[in-house]
Write a protein that binds this DNA or RNA. Structure first.
Lengths: 351, 351
DNA sequence: CTCCGGGATTGAAAGGTTTCACAAACCTGG
DNA sequence: CCAGGTTTGTGAAACCTTTCAATCCCGGAG
């Protein structure tokens, strides 16, 4: 007897208190506790205080699963990003987080690491969790999995990519325009042979940026052979560095005097290998990056880059998603932002 | 009549199919469907096929909330990181993700952005979600909120920090040792006046690294005045750059010839401002960073840095957490890894 | 032919919250 | 002091899955 009592007292896990326990402790009905939680204005101040005291005393924590179960959907938004190690996406996520926080929603961030399979696994999980909606920068925006997801009722917003159909909202930046800006700037600086560093071309972002560069060349009366492709398997610093080696190996007659990189990671890698190989920047090689991540400005030769409104991109995407899930008369929208060229030392004509 | 029928057909949201609908469609009981899902081996192949066909036909998606409600806990791990924009933490998260994936768990990544308030909000949310456990690099490891959380039954693992008590597991890297390595290296290179760039000192990481540097100086017979403090409000590239301005302003008699930065972001900022101010690195100023993020090696003057096993840090933390939540006889462990100095051009003695 | 054992299947209960129709208590003015 | 209206509080149903004891059915042994 005494033993049992002392066991009770020493019990380490008194099983989390629920709304029912709170009701009992406060001497009110279960429904009233729920009202305190969800519509405090419909409960008298006196009772409310009593209930709140009971909650504090018991260390009550709302059970979100039960809540969701009843509501049919959660208060969680998710972002499936393409590359967790690219600061660009981190910044996009920060923008989403701000918007989500304003509506008292949480943001669940997942990283597909550019792996279609991993992306699919996350989407399955998220659907099972009945997240309120999914923000995604997809490996492949045309994947039927996305359409399926939307068809089954989960709102999906495509980020940093456009999708032809009108099944989803999307927020993107005009990458063709960005490529044009970059290339035109290099042309203005007197370059006529430009390397395009980037890949794989399965990524729409890469395709579009290259396409833009090509257009700028054509507009200047130069043929497509003035764009020298240096394809990379991925968009990492390492790949950029490798591209630099290849570039240096080209015969000087045909070697480009400028390079346009599909993102800043590549550009930073290229910059590094130039330093290692004794090619001065911008005199020996002018370099333009893309995204204008913080490290671009921080590089020792600050990088000229095409800036995207990354924070706004994320914020707008989240806002569209929230709007879609709350407004039944919602119409899908395709928002496109314009990029902007930020000129820094890596392309400044040396006198 | 006809009208109603056609309405039925056109209904856009036929309300997600549940286990019950599947059971009806397959002509079996609800319990059997559950068995197919959870213990397929106890169901005859014939029935199983039938059920699986029904699931596919109805586009059945398991409802995780209901599942959780029954189970009492979810299959989600969460990492509350200190700074989403610092690649170090991103890499730690990647390590966790790998470990989580192996156990078929999801990782929910949140960013406290070094804001105690935001951290608290996330912790509240996560507790409400009944996540299986929380990994956290806390703003303040001694915060009572963490102990509370653990007391109420949520497992907590402290990452990149140690906590005196034994309430939690923790995984950390010996920052004092790291500071020592960095400073000793600079002393070996002949420097005797070393700047310490970093802050705020409320961050244990910063305190410890500074402490280590101090020890190395003392061991070399140099007084604490040989360590020149350049305090920064945060650990960003911008702060590092500002510190550079201040450093350059010091009278040349007392100006340090080397700088040890509390992390790589600061070091990159410092590097940039040196370039802008015409201070050559390492001849004019040797620089050591901390973390060895990818951008450190990618900087145009590759950065000497103290490498932490960041991927392993994350993986181990997640493994400990999983162990803690699955093994009832679990004993809290404090794992400490040793850092390693990676020497690059930013400190190489010129000739 | 009956009985038994064991695998396959079933049905009901449980888990914590929200919602909603309803009951109770209170207040106002006549 | 009462009718009628408003403000508070109540109780039960519903959300979807899992679990587990109970039942069913089948073939084989006696």
């Amino acid at each position: 007897m005494a033993v049992e009592d002392s066991n009770e007292v020493a019990a380490p896990a008194p099983r989390a208190a629920g709304i029912k326990d709170v009701a009992a402790a406060a001497g009110v009905s279960l429904g009233t506790v729920s009202n305190v939680l969800n519509r405090p204005e419909r409960v008298s101040p006196k009772t409310r205080t009593k209930v709140e005291a009971a909650m504090a005393a018991l260390g009550f924590v709302r059970n979100e699963s039960a809540r969701q179960l009843r509501a049919g959907h959660s208060r969680v938004l998710a972002y499936v990003m393409l590359d967790g190690r690219n600061p660009f996406f981190t910044d996009v996520a920060a923008g989403m987080e701000d918007a989500a926080a304003e509506d008292d929603l949480s943001l669940f961030v997942c990283n597909s690491a550019n792996l279609a399979e991993r992306e699919a696994a996350y989407l399955r999980r998220l659907e099972q969790q009945r997240v309120q909606g999914v923000l995604i920068t997809p490996v492949d925006p045309d994947s039927p999995a996305l359409a399926e997801l939307a068809r089954r009722g989960t709102s999906v917003v495509i980020v940093d990519r456009k999708r032809p159909g009108t099944d989803h909202c999307s927020v993107a930046v005009d990458d063709v325009r960005g490529g044009e800006l970059a290339a035109r700037h290099l042309l203005d600086q007197g370059h006529t042979r430009i390397a395009f560093v980037g890949g794989p071309l399965t990524l729409g972002q890469v395709r579009d940026r290259r396409e833009g560069a090509l257009r700028a060349l054509l507009a200047a009366g130069l043929g497509p052979d003035h764009l020298v492709d240096l394809a990379t398997p991925q968009l990492t610093v390492e790949d950029g560095s490798n591209a630099g080696q290849r570039l240096a190996g080209l015969p000087s007659a045909t070697r480009p005097t400028a390079a346009f990189c599909a993102n800043d990671l590549l550009a930073l890698g290229l910059l590094r290998s130039c330093a290692a190989l004794g090619i001065s920047v911008p005199a020996g090689l002018a370099i333009v990056g893309y995204d204008d991540i913080d490290f671009a400005a921080a590089a020792t030769v600050p990088l000229t880059s095409v800036r995207q409104p990354r924070h706004r991109l994320g914020r707008t995407a989240a806002e569209l998603l929230i709007q879609e899930t709350s407004d039944p008369g919602h119409v899908h929208q395709q928002v496109t932002y314009l990029p902007e060229l930020v000129v820094r030392a890596s392309t400044l004509r040396t006198k």
